[in-house]
């Protein structure tokens, strides 16, 4: 990421990231529609939706809710910057988690029971996937000798070679973060679930748009993170990331939503076991 105008490039990336995220989510919707035998919306539909949300009259239940929406976005952008700048992975995780936590607090500060239960479930999800992300950072440290997220770029071997099982576990985390079907228990993109819209139920208009934009950043972050697994050749990394996204669409369409406890059991047995095995292998090889 060292160019003649690093700040310019950074600003450009930060600006482009949400559009990239929106585009990815548009492609996701299109692919989902095709997988269901529908035509589906135009690829830039998420962009239209967000722009429309931004133009709506803001309705808020309390001011603190708005603060949390902004915090959610701000921390997400910060996490994105840390990732792009190749900063400390643990720091990135912390900021990333704080962003989600802001969202949870935003869901908690209203009186709607749906929103509150959604927040509780989101916390449970965080408890379920954070260990895997931390193990992933430990894996990166073991493989590259550094917690820096820039390290995969200079490493000799692609990260995927050292962390194949952790990559699989990361894909599961990705499915959770993208609110894909077996794991979309806290909130989901289509409001068809027991919690109506769960976590983001009480947000409307521009503040919902903020959360949407944050989600676009989140998608961009996840995409970038998958690319890290093959950072030595970004073209291969790009293909890998695209394949992962396609896999997410497949999973979304081939699964029903499962229960909170199932997700928790799965994460703390299956996914965690995968991650731990990988770490142990790194230690003892």
């Amino acid at each position: 990421m060292i160019t003649s105008h690093p700040l310019m490039l950074l600003a450009l990336l930060t600006l482009i990231a949400p559009f990239w995220g929106a585009l990815l989510s548009g492609i996701d919707r299109k692919l989902t529609a095709r997988a269901q035998g529908r035509i589906g919306p135009p690829v830039i539909q998420p962009l239209y939706d967000t722009l429309k949300l931004l133009r709506k009259t803001p309705i808020v239940l309390n001011r603190i809710q708005v603060v949390y929406a902004y915090l959610h976005l701000a921390f997400m952008v910060l996490a994105f910057l840390l990732l792009v700048l190749g900063q400390d992975g643990l720091m990135f995780l912390f900021v990333f988690a704080f962003s989600t936590l802001s969202l949870v607090l935003g869901g908690m500060c209203v009186r709607s029971p749906y929103s509150r239960i959604g927040s509780q479930r989101e916390i449970l999800l965080m408890v379920a996937y954070e260990p895997i992300l931390i193990l992933l950072m430990i894996g990166i440290y073991k493989a590259n000798g550094s917690f820096l997220l820039g390290s995969p770029f200079v490493a000799a071997k692609p990260l995927l070679m050292a962390l194949p099982l952790l990559f699989l576990a990361f894909l599961v985390v990705m499915a959770i973060k993208l609110q894909k079907s077996p794991f979309d228990i806290a909130t989901s993109h289509h409001a068809h679930q027991e919690l109506v819209k769960g976590l983001t139920l009480e947000y409307a208009g521009p503040y919902l748009a903020l959360i949407e934009i944050a989600h676009f950043y989140e998608i961009a972050i996840l995409f970038y993170f998958v690319m890290l697994f093959w950072a030595s050749n970004l073209a291969i990394g790009f293909v890998l990331a695209c394949a992962s996204f396609f896999l997410m669409v497949l999973i979304d369409n081939a699964f029903a939503r499962l229960t909170t406890m199932w997700v928790f059991r799965f994460m703390w047995t299956g996914a965690l076991l995968l991650a731990l095995t990988n770490i142990l292998w790194l230690y003892f090889r």
Partner: peptide, 16 residues
């Protein structure tokens, strides 16, 4: 389900 999804991706959409 997966094979069904693959089939659908190859088929013409049912909607218009």
């Amino acid at each position: 389900m997966l094979s069904n999804i693959m089939k659908n991706l190859g088929r013409k959409a049912a909607t218009r």
